[in-house]
Write a protein that binds this DNA or RNA. Sequence first.
DNA 1: TTGTGTGCAAAAGCTTTGCATGTTG
DNA 2: CAACATGCAAAGCTTTTGCACACAA
Lengths: 155, 155
Amino acid sequence: MTAKIEETIQEVKKIFSSHLEQNSFRKTPERFAILEEIYRRNDHFDAEALYIHMKNQSYRVSRATVYNTLDLLVNCDLVKRHQFGKNLALYEKSYGYKQHDHLICEDCGKVVEFCDPRIQQIKDMMGELLKYNITHHSLNLFGKCNGACERTKKQ
Amino acid sequence: MTAKIEETIQEVKKIFSSHLEQNSFRKTPERFAILEEIYRRNDHFDAEALYIHMKNQSYRVSRATVYNTLDLLVNCDLVKRHQFGKNLALYEKSYGYKQHDHLICEDCGKVVEFCDPRIQQIKDMMGELLKYNITHHSLNLFGKCNGACERTKKQ
DNA sequence: TTGTGTGCAAAAGCTTTGCATGTTG
DNA sequence: CAACATGCAAAGCTTTTGCACACAA
C-alpha cells in the first residue's frame, strides 16, 4: 500500500511536470512539495489546513503559493475543489479516482463519497433538453449521520 | 398577473408574521419591506444587489439588516439560498415554488432551473444505504449556453 | 419602559495582490 | 540574466459584530 502511494506520487509528479512545461510555468520545488503533500493525505482538506501541515513539516511555503499551486493542480485535474458551504471550500486529490459526489454531515462535517449513475443521465438529458454543453456538476447531499457524530465533532 | 403578485405578497407576509410571532422576534417595517422587495423580484439575486435595490428605492436599510432578514426568511422557508461558487451566494423566493435544481452558464452567469425526479430517488436511496437522514441537497450543473451568452455577459 | 432591532462602521474570515527578493530556464 | 515564482503583509470581498440609538411589545 505504501509502495502504491509512492508509485502514484511519481505518476502525478510526471503529469504535473508535463502540465507546467506545456504552459511554460516553472517547475519549482514548492509546487512539487505541495503536490506530494496532497497525495499523501487521504481526506478532504482546506487550503489553510494544507498550509499549516506544510509549515509543521519543516517545509517553508506561503499561503499565496499554496493557493496558487492549488489552482494549478485543479486546472490540470490532479485536484478537485468542492464548495461545501459559504466559507467551506475543501480540496481532494483526484488522480485515479472515479467520479463521485458527496454527502456531508451537518453536525460533524464528515464527508462521505458516493456514486450514482443517474446523475450522469440527468446531465446528459438536461444538456440536450436545454441546449447546454454541460462541463461539470456539483451534487451535495446534506444530512445527519445518526449518532456517530457526537464523538467526531469537527474543529 | 400583477394581482397575483399582490396576493402572494399578502400571503407570505402573513406567514412571515406568524414565524416572527412564534419565535418572539419583532415585526419591524424593515423586515417586511425586505420580504416584499424579494417577492417583487423574479430572479436569483445576491445580498448586495438586494441592499442596493432597497437603497435606490428610497428605503433606508443597512446591510446588517438585509443579511439578518435573509437568514430569518431562509429559516422559515420563504427564501432559498444557493451557493453557486466561492463568492457567489444567490437567493430566490421559494413560496409556492416546486423543488428544482440549477444549471449555471459559466460564461454569462445565467441561471436556469430544472426538475428531475431522479434526484429524489438518489437522496432516498443514499440516505437509506448510508444510514443518514438527508435534510436537503444542492445540485448544480455548469455549462455553456451555446451562443446566447455573449450578449448577456453579466456584471 | 425594557430589551430587541437597526444603522453604521469596524472587524472577521478566506483569498488575492503588490512589492522586493530569489530562482528557474 | 531576464522573467517568473515566492514570501510576506496588506488589501479585497462578502458577511458578521459591536455599539449607541430607535422603536416594537
